[in-house]
Nucleic acid binder design. Structure first.
Length: 99
DNA sequence: GGCATGACGCTAA
DNA sequence: TTTAGCGCCATGC
């Protein structure tokens, strides 16, 4: 399965995302060499172990919104991490730069 | 093989 | 800004 090499590219691209920056699923997919496979990226991230070192919290959808239901544990965790990196989260879950 | 589901994306209204 | 519809692909039943 050549998907494995693509996964490695995905992990590399994700690890290369600077602090205080967010990237969309589609962008990550393109960076991994699989343009248009945003759902594939989401599926991979959903299977990441809890002890991962990857900045999965810097990944949002194309609308710069956290792709978790408001009020869910995952939503709070991601928003907390992003805020810790200097980003601002609106009440609707949209991520914006403080700049 | 068919159908439903999901950490998605885009366009239209 | 939100909702709805359609397209897309991987998985599981």
């Amino acid at each position: 399965m050549d998907n494995i090499s693509s996964e490695e590219r995905l992990y590399t691209a994700l690890a290369s995302v600077p602090i205080g920056t967010i990237i969309a699923y589609g962008e990550l997919a393109s960076a991994a060499g699989l343009p248009g496979r945003a759902r594939w990226v989401g599926r991979i991230l959903s299977q990441l172990p809890s002890d991962t070192q990857l900045p999965w919290h810097r990944v949002t959808n194309a609308q710069r919104r956290i792709s978790f239901p408001l009020g869910s544990d995952r939503f709070f965790e991601q928003s907390a991490r992003l805020q810790r990196e200097g980003l601002q989260i609106s009440s609707t879950g949209k991520v914006s730069l403080p700049n």
